[in-house]
């Protein structure tokens, strides 16, 4: 098992330049989380998490079900706000600015921090309208030509354009599962976010669609910071440069993906990645 993961981590997509000291000037983190705790009513789902998300890097959050990784992800774009009973404490900043501050407009925040969900959720509209939805809401384009350009470029970046170029007016729900998920990614990047949050983006997809999405994630890294929640350790090993392991709401270990999967410090991490807990 470990050997296998080691082999996979040597594939070029996962080899981060950040792993080679001196090749890159240290950048400021896009997101910093300090002492973040999440409560659902009285139940605490996440305990005092400290974590940074670096630009042009894929950070994967792994851990068994109910470990709080999705709760943390949903803090980064304040999607937890939509759940009445959910309460977040601690400090989360985006480019140094507290995103839970009163002066922050959550609408603007979510335009800057895009999100892709576990199950593809295209709107029951045309492919074009799905992608145009965010730009229209935020009034990002000044005319139809510019909007079309943005839609096409977003679809291209999501690697979907060639497959749907001649049927942009077809319903988004008519696509296959993998195409739908790439449509959702195109929709998310159409608002020109700086960060993409992905909540198990491939768990509802077949292996071929999954590998397409994984390649896409690696390409998107050139332009965005990406945080991905995944249940698949192989996937975490393949796509991410940093990995954080959660267990029972606590951040157990974080570090370079290669180090986490080959030489974990904590015994619990060791148990999880070797399949003894989970």
């Amino acid at each position: 098992m470990l050997d296998q993961i080691k082999l996979e981590t040597t594939n070029p997509g996962a080899t981060s330049t950040a792993l080679l000291p001196g090749t890159m000037t240290p950048a400021n983190p896009k997101i910093t989380a300090r002492n973040v705790s999440v409560f659902y009513e009285q139940k605490q789902a996440l305990f005092d998490v400290d974590l940074d998300v670096m630009p042009n890097e894929v950070l994967s959050l792994i851990g068994p079900s109910g470990c709080g990784k999705s709760s943390l992800l949903r803090c980064f774009n304040r999607m937890n706000d939509t759940i009445d009973v959910c309460r977040v404490t601690g400090n989360i900043t985006l480019d140094g600015q507290d995103i839970y501050d009163r002066s922050i407009d959550v609408v603007e925040l979510r335009a800057r921090v895009g999100m892709v969900f576990q199950k593809p959720n295209p709107f029951p509209k045309s492919i074009f309208e799905n992608v145009a939805y965010g730009p229209r809401i935020h009034g990002m384009t000044k005319d139809r030509d510019e909007l079309e350009e943005l839609v096409v470029s977003s679809l291209k970046r999501a690697g979907l354009f060639d497959e749907v170029a001649d049927r942009l007016q077809d319903s988004g729900t008519s696509l296959s599962g993998g195409q739908q998920q790439r449509l959702c990614i195109a929709r998310a990047i159409a608002t020109r976010p700086e960060i993409l949050l992905m909540d198990e983006p491939a768990s509802a997809l077949d292996p071929i669609a999954t590998s397409i999405i994984e390649e896409l994630i690696d390409e998107l890294r050139q332009n965005y910071a990406i945080v991905i929640v995944t249940h698949s350790m192989q996937q975490a090993a393949r796509v991410s440069q940093k990995t954080a392991f959660f267990h029972m709401g606590k951040l157990i270990e974080k570090g370079e993906t290669e180090q986490i999967f080959t030489n974990p410090v904590d015994a619990k991490t060791q148990d999880y990645i070797t399949g003894r807990i989970g």
Binding site: K119, P122, Y133, I137, T191
Partner: peptide, 27 residues
């Protein structure tokens, strides 16, 4: 109308009334 559509719209920065007018009601 599935909650996932409302979440998807909210995650794109739509307000609640935009979500209802542009996603939920058409659906």
């Amino acid at each position: 109308v599935p909650e996932s559509l409302r979440d998807g719209s909210a995650a794109l920065g739509a307000t609640r009334s935009e979500t209802i007018r542009k996603v939920v009601l058409p659906a």
